[in-house]
Design a protein around this nucleic acid. Structure first.
Lengths: 352, 352
DNA sequence: ACGATTTCTGATAACGTTATCAGAAATCAC
DNA sequence: GTGATTTCTGATAACGTTATCAGAAATCGT
């Protein structure tokens, strides 16, 4: 077969359903029926075939099943990045594992797309039968992926929301509600002057990032409690932006007793800025961060009170949703909003 | 076909090679030959078939190709964890993307295994033709996965090293050499009393984690420069362990002017401990951390001088290695050692 | 005891591709 | 112009599975 000096890695071509059939003295379709738990098989035959399967160490050929079955049993998870190097956060680990775990439970395979993906390449994934469906990360208001897949009627599920989604399935975070919960907590502690350090309005408008709509939530909360608006937009998710944003906020609003920031790093910058101006956290000013549940919040001093969400949970549920959709188990589009949780740690405190 | 009220998502069953053949007025094998760039096809025919492919929007059926071709064109990346929730570091994002990118370039699919994997399940991945090969993360000295795959003669590649590996392919970090480089740098700055905060000896012995053999490197370096050994073992990778380990070190060795720690978090703990005892970093004591190239090193104050390695690069190269092995492009086992790089930031300084 | 049903089983034909062969057409050598 | 070679093409048979059908054996009702 192969050259003598390059030892073939497949001495035995693998045991097939035909081998099992022969060993058990039955026909191939009978073995197939037993493998797939179809009705109308004699108990005695079943025993004999299972025995043969065990002694031969037979396992069905996945590729053959997929070809015959007409489904690839494979999903993709797509992150819309420019370069794979841009993926440098623990969030992705969490997204990956959540998706992988759900897929594994549903006996699906999962393919992570981290390269630049053209519209043509995306369609090809379906057309060439590489995947049955796709889970889209970081969906924006106007997202070419959504438009394309919708037009072509290919199955997909979104993490995040886009415009015009009445018939689409998605899972997203409900920061609109969560911000009000955060205010419930802070107001209870006596805070009346609460600042917000957030992403630019344009990001909220286009729907970029998970904390989208937290600005809407902030404004709802203000009107609920009749408080004064006081927020500032920062550019990037970084310690520096948090530092400078906080300085800006306080220059014009020295009366603030609490700040909510849009990420952990920003919060770290806030604390740094406050400390430098002689305000201790949380004694002189409380800080609350929006963020995914990593361990960063506990590592910082003081540990951060957060409005937390879990990429693992979100991607897990999105993946289950995708499999249900493919199994036609959904009568209509599912739209799931997950409320982030308030986790109180050391960086918030009642007003003294 | 399907019920009227559940709109089938595959109105057209997909265009096949037969459709192309008919449209171009040739036989199916001819189309196949053109698709696979075989020799002996008339230029005129080729044109006509390509034209048909284009107008029909044909893409070859991946599953059919795999069945016929006898290869799954799929790899797995396995991380030996108890629960997927244990994967909570940015390292994994980097491992994932490196592997995914390499696989994509080589036109392989990649499957991330994050669930608990039994030996039986591992063998089944091969036997049921789900994968052609696997990339093992976190290989230990005595690793059941290696033993099992070796016995069964299934292709795999390791990230990390095990015992008795003369005929095995792996990629690992060369911390033995890197530690000497770190000493070259520190000694140049005038340091003679250099402490090391490292994992327990047992971890080094069993080969757990990427910084394995850094202890050997430390001892090589000491003997190269005739310096005194002074290290302490810590339990976990955490700020607290770094804090306490540093306190321990200094209690018995107050003359230390530099510390090398085994991770970023540990280094953060070290800095905290030193500062609390009135020693400023780097003026009074230098701190150097071993770590993967995330952005944490730059976020800390002072930013950390590190001995850095890239999980992206390591997994990328491991994946390429795996594909080469499967393509029989390797005449012998490849054993690659990647030297971590010394990145000088703010936490080290010459002795004054 | 007899036909009607229920259980069980095996031929056969797909799923969409590629490898192998052999035959037809074109080119070459002389 | 003839035979040998080179190009080109199409039947046919796989790869390993499952769906469909029809036939055989067992069970049932009366």
């Amino acid at each position: 077969m192969t050259k003598k000096n390059t030892p073939s890695r497949n001495e035995n071509r693998g045991v097939t359903i035909a081998d099992v059939a022969k060993a058990a003295g039955v026909s191939i379709p009978t073995v197939s029926r037993i493998l797939n738990d179809k009705e109308y098989v004699a108990e005695e035959t079943r025993q004999r075939v299972h025995e043969a399967i065990r002694t031969l160490g037979y396992t069905p050929h996945t590729q053959a099943r997929r070809l015959r079955g007409g489904a690839t049993m494979t999903l993709a998870l797509h992150h819309p990045i420019e370069s794979p190097h841009d993926l440098s956060s623990v969030i992705e680990t969490s997204y990956f594992t959540g998706t992988a775990e759900a897929a594994s439970e549903k006996e699906y395979f999962i393919n992570f797309l981290v390269s630049q993906l053209t519209p043509e390449a995306l369609l090809n994934m379906y057309r060439s039968n590489q995947i049955d469906g796709i889970i889209l990360l970081q969906v924006r208001m106007d997202d070419w992926r959504v438009n394309l897949l919708r037009e072509n009627n290919y199955p997909f599920v979104m993490i995040g929301r886009c415009a015009d989604l009445e018939d689409l399935s998605f899972i997203d975070l409900d920061f609109e509600t969560a911000m009000v919960a955060a205010f419930d907590y802070l107001v209870e502690l006596g805070h009346r002057d609460i600042g917000f350090l957030t992403y630019p309005q344009s990001w909220h408008k286009t729907g970029l990032g998970p904390a989208v709509r937290s600005l809407d939530g902030y404004q709802h909360a203000l009107s609920k409690y009749g408080l004064r608006s006081c927020y500032r937009e920062i550019g990037l998710n970084s310690v520096e932006e948090g530092f400078e944003g906080t300085n800006d906020l306080f220059r014009e609003n020295p009366e603030l007793t609490a700040i909510i920031t849009v990420s952990h790093l920003t919060a770290a910058g806030s604390i740094k800025a406050l400390t430098q101006h002689g305000r201790n956290v949380p004694q002189d000013c409380s800080v609350m961060a929006i963020g995914f549940g990593g361990n960063f919040a506990s590592v910082v001093t003081p540990s951060l009170t957060t409005l937390e969400w879990s990429p693992y949970e979100v991607s897990y549920r999105a993946t289950i949703l995708m499999t249900e959709k493919l199994a036609n188990e959904l009568s209509s589009a599912q739209q799931i909003l997950v409320p982030p949780k308030l986790i109180v740690r050391e960086s918030t405190k009642e007003v003294t």
